[in-house]
Amino acid sequence: MKIAIIGAGAMGSLFGGRLAQAGEDVWLLDVWEEHVAAIQAHGLTLVDTTAETSIRLNATTQADDIGPVDLVIIFVKSYATPDAAQTAAALLGPATTVLTLQNGLGNAETLAKVLGAERVVVGTTAMGATLLGPGRIKCGGQGPTHIGSFSGGANPRLHDIATIFARAGIHTVVDSNVTALVWSKLIINVGINAITALTGIPNGQVMASAETRELVRLAVAEAVAVARASGIPLPHTNYFDQVATVAQATRDNRSSMLQDVTNRRRTEIDAINGAIVAAGKRLGVPTPVNETLTLLIKTLEQTYLS
């Protein structure tokens, strides 16, 4: 299968590298010229606890280099989704599927407006990765990937994608309840991302002290209350335990928001904790902890983005 990955940061590179290792025709597309040049020259290096592996695959900064593909995977930050949708439009063939594995709310809706809802597949992943430098990423944890049709109709490509991912070592489940999937991932991100970004700790330490555990508990409880007020049929009853499980499974990983803050980049706070605050205001559900976390991250961003 010919696959284009838009957004070759830590997670996009991880998926691209694994899929290329499994024999798929993979193209990484990213605006970071130094990263792309390193991959073109030396391959993509995947670092794990036991070894470093160099993988040869296609990488470019220009969508015109790629041509039509069978599958587009979107891994850009949520605020870049409108631009990614326009880029993906240039890669479409008659039967191209577009899969979003992004954080936050609203990405699938943005893609569907430009590309058509019938093409869009929504997913979440518990895989973890950290960008070490141009052409180098560290694998940061294993976890399942779930995918489902955004339109709710049958999509024959879903099982093909799951099979291809499984061959690449990415355990993937086809799921019919994609809205609940996205909200479940959002709630887990609410419990990890902003807290790690503000404190500088890896995922495994968010449950290491009574103070951070309480922050997690309060932030997650607000997110669950908003989800329930929205009528979302959440698949788990105890999301504090779910956060603890994910944090332990990715204990050495630095969350994407922590990586953004470390590298002085704009974060996805508006699509994560900020999305809980916005939905809470619409629904009349108080979200003071998530509002505080959102304001703290925005204050931190202003110290390096202004």
Rank of each mutant, 00 (worst) to 15 (best):
G133F: 10
R136Q: 14
Y239D: 06
K185Y: 08
N238Y: 10
I73S: 01
R266D: 01
R56M: 07
C139H: 14
L92R: 08
G152F: 04
P288W: 06
V76M: 03
G135L: 07
E109A: 15
I5N: 00
M127S: 01
T81V: 15
V261E: 02
E214A: 11
R228M: 09
G143C: 08
H236C: 07
I201W: 04
V220M: 08
V114G: 03
L28H: 06
L181Q: 13
Q242W: 10
T212R: 10
G123L: 03
A194W: 01
A51M: 06
V121M: 13
P235S: 09
Q62R: 15
I201K: 07
M11K: 11
V114I: 12
V277A: 13
L115D: 04
V226T: 11
D30C: 06
L115M: 12
H236A: 12
C139Y: 11
R56I: 02
T60L: 10
V206L: 05
V98W: 02
T100N: 07
I164G: 00
G123F: 02
E214F: 02
K2R: 15
T287A: 14
E34H: 14
T96I: 06
K2M: 03
I161K: 00
V114L: 10
L101T: 04
P288V: 08
V98H: 06
N290S: 09
R254P: 02
L111S: 09
L215M: 11
W32N: 13
H171M: 06
R251D: 05
G17H: 01
I272Q: 11
I5L: 14
L132Q: 14
E33I: 14
R136T: 06
L28S: 04
S176F: 00
T87F: 02
L29E: 09
V243A: 05
D64I: 11
V120P: 06
R266I: 05
N193K: 04
L198P: 00
V174L: 10
A129E: 06
T81L: 08
A249G: 10
A37R: 15
T303Y: 02
Q242G: 01
A112F: 12
L186C: 09
A219V: 05
A88F: 06
R56E: 10
T303H: 09
A51P: 00
L181K: 09
S54T: 14
D175F: 00
G16Q: 02
V76G: 02
L99W: 01
T172I: 02
M207F: 13
A180N: 06
A180Q: 07
